[in-house]
Structure formats: structure tokens, C-alpha cells
């Protein structure tokens, strides 16, 4: 649906985006993850045709953005970081204007405004001036704007920025509901957002793609092993010894010990669930088991790992980002 090939954007001497390539499948929600200033907004602006690329190409539904911008623009709904609203218009006036410039047929305009207002929960403020609405409402009006033409592709730049927690959840649900009907790219620097909304993630740092994959896939790939946390009461050395002997366990490390209670980090082989065996081992030895849970490497950890080191330390820049795995094995 969206093909980005070797995209590069320079602002004078600064390289904002450097040789980025990735694809987005139809109906997919792709998360675009990276710290502020990583080049997320620039990439999105190039896809929408707002900026032109220095080199490389972007195709949306087979149309090249540089060569047939109007065809691409007809198919894209775009919500920039700051919702592009006119404060002196009412919500209805604004959506009508957007519909007109985006080519919604006059006869459908009213119906379409009703639909998107309903979907984005702005119908109750239809006749209020946008400038007098709260940030949350303005964001949703912006989203309604992006949906006006029922676009094939939706590009959302930090759609939950500046919203309160309740609104964030509502917006996420709304975006999730769009999958299937629309292909969505959403950018964010908020990690839980990605794991909760997106099927696939492109991690970008300093203008380069550093990893691509599903959120869990990334976790598994970068970690190389699973971790189970075991909290039990009993003599620590013996517990450790006992757990070491459970098949599938690589290493047991104490994490914290308070009085007679210890919390242990058990590293187990990848894709092997040994929780039941661990529980049995503890209980059968007569110790008290308080807690037992798997602890995946959080997306935060991965993100930090990907964006804070390794890149600068002599590792070559990824030539073919979608298949590479550019991260050191987890050190612990």
C-alpha cells in the first residue's frame, strides 16, 4: 500500500532522514517510533506530499508522490502534530470546507460530516467555534478532518499528544477501529501506545531505521531468552540450586532479598514455558511461593537499547533495514 524506498531528506547540511525504506501492507497499523527529532514528522510529511524528498521515492497505492501528487493526496488523510484547524470556524463549517477542498461530492457532504463527527465524537460540538474547544476536542476534530474523504491511507503524527489519559484511551480505540478499512501510519514517542495499537513497528533514530517488526517479535528477537520472576520464602542458596536444576533454565540470579523472602530472576530458554515446573519445584521443597510471573523485556528497554548506543560504536549503518536486526544481544 505504501512503499518507501531509500528516502533521504536534507535541510541544508543537516540530514533529517537518511536512506529509509519500509513498506506498509493494506489494512495494517504501522507504528513509527523514535525519540523527538528522529525524523518521524519529516518522513510523514514527505509521504503526504507536504515536503519533497531530497532523494528516494514514496509510492502510495502505486502512485509516486513526486510525480502524481494529486492522486496520492486524494487517497491520504493526514493529521499533523498540531491539528490544522481554523479557530474562527465552527466544527461543521470546518469539516464542510475540508470536504470541499478534498473533493467530497456536494450531495454527500452533509452525510459525510455527520458520519465522521459521530465516529470522532465531535457531533455534540458541531456548532461551536473550534478555537473555543479543548485540546482533546480539537485533536478529534483534526482526526475527523483526516477521515472526511474516507481515505485509503491515514497518516497520524502523534495523535495522542496533549490529551488526557481518558482521551488517549478513546483515541487509541478509535484508531484500532480504523484498521482493516484504512492503512494507518502513526508516529509516537510514547511506547505503550505502539504495543497497544500497532501491528508492526518501525523504530527510527537519527534519521535511520534501526528495527522493524511486530512489538512482541522485537522483544523476543532482541532478548534471546525469557525471564521469569520468582518470589519465594526460604533459604536463598537452596532455592537457587533447586531452580537451576529445572530443565530449560539457563541461569538464576537473585534480584532482591528482604528478610526471609527472595525474588529471583530466572532466565529460561526462549519459547519454553517452564512456569509450572518452577512452581512445583518451589512448593514440593516445602517453601512458600508468593509470586511467579514472566517478565518480558519491555518496549522501553528495547527502545533505549536501540536508540541510545551501538549505532555510534562502529556498527555499519543498516543497508537493508526491514530484515536486519541491528541490536547487540541483550547484556545483563
Amino acid at each position: 500500500m505504501i512503499e518507501v524506498e531509500n528516502l533521504t531528506k536534507r535541510y541544508g547540511p543537516t540530514l533529517a532522514v537518511s536512506n529509509i525504506s519500509f513498506n506498509v501492507q493494506e489494512g495494517e497499523i504501522l507504528g513509527f517510533l523514535g525519540p523527538n527529532g528522529a525524523g518521524k514528522t519529516t518522513t510523514m510529511r514527505i509521504i503526504t506530499g507536504f515536503l519533497s524528498a531530497s532523494s528516494g521515492r514514496v509510492r502510495v497505492s502505486g502512485f509516486d508522490v513526486a510525480e502524481q501528487p494529486l492522486e496520492v493526496k486524494k487517497r491520504i488523510g493526514y493529521l499533523p502534530e498540531n491539528p490544522p484547524v481554523y479557530p474562527d470556524m465552527t466544527v461543521n463549517e470546518y469539516l464542510a470546507f475540508v470536504g470541499r477542498i478534498k473533493g467530497v461530492p456536494r450531495s454527500d457532504l452533509k452525510k459525510r460530516i455527520g458520519e465522521v463527527s459521530e465516529k470522532c465524537a465531535v457531533a455534540n460540538v458541531a456548532n461551536r467555534q473550534i478555537g473555543k474547544l479543548s485540546k482533546g476536542y480539537r485533536q478529534r476534530v483534526g482526526l475527523a478532518q483526516a477521515l472526511m474523504v474516507n481515505p485509503d491511507v491515514l497518516i497520524l503524527d502523534e495523535p495522542t499528544a496533549g490529551l488526557d489519559p481518558k482521551q488517549i484511551i478513546e483515541t487509541r480505540e478509535l484508531i484500532k477501529g480504523l484498521a482493516g478499512h484504512h492503512t494507518v501510519i502513526l508516529s509516537t514517542h510514547i511506547l505503550p501506545e505502539v504495543s497497544r495499537t500497532c501491528q508492526r513497528v518501525v523504530v527510527i533514530n537519527q534519521g535511520k531505521v534501526v528495527a522493524v517488526g511486530a512489538p512482541d517479535e522485537l522483544t523476543a528477537r532482541l532478548q534471546g531468552y525469557g525471564t521469569v520472576l520468582v518470589s519465594a520464602e526460604g533459604p536463598a542458596p537452596e532455592i537457587i540450586g533447586k531452580l537451576q536444576s529445572v530443565p530449560g533454565v539457563n541461569l538464576v540470579e537473585p534480584r532482591e532479598a528482604a528478610e526471609s523472602r527472595v525474588t529471583l530472576e530466572v532466565h529460561v530458554e526462549k519459547e519454553r514455558d517452564v512456569r509450572a515446573e518452577l512452581a512445583r519445584a518451589v512448593v514440593e521443597s516445602g517453601w512458600k511461593l508468593f509470586e511467579l510471573k514472566t517478565s518480558g523485556m519491555s518496549l522501553e528497554d528495547i527502545f533505549l537499547k536501540l536508540t541510545t548506543h551501538d549505532l555510534s560504536e562502529g556498527k555499519p549503518a543498516p543497508e537493508n533495514p526491514p530484515v536486519q536486526q541491528d541490536a547487540a544481544p541483550a547484556e545483563n
Partner: peptide
Amino acid sequence: RSGTIELLLTSPLT
């Protein structure tokens, strides 16, 4: 200033 230029320039208008 208001960012609405992004709306105009990403709409199917020349």
C-alpha cells in the same frame, strides 16, 4: 503559523 498550511498543501489541490 497555525499549521493549516499543512492541510492545504496535503489536499488534492494544485
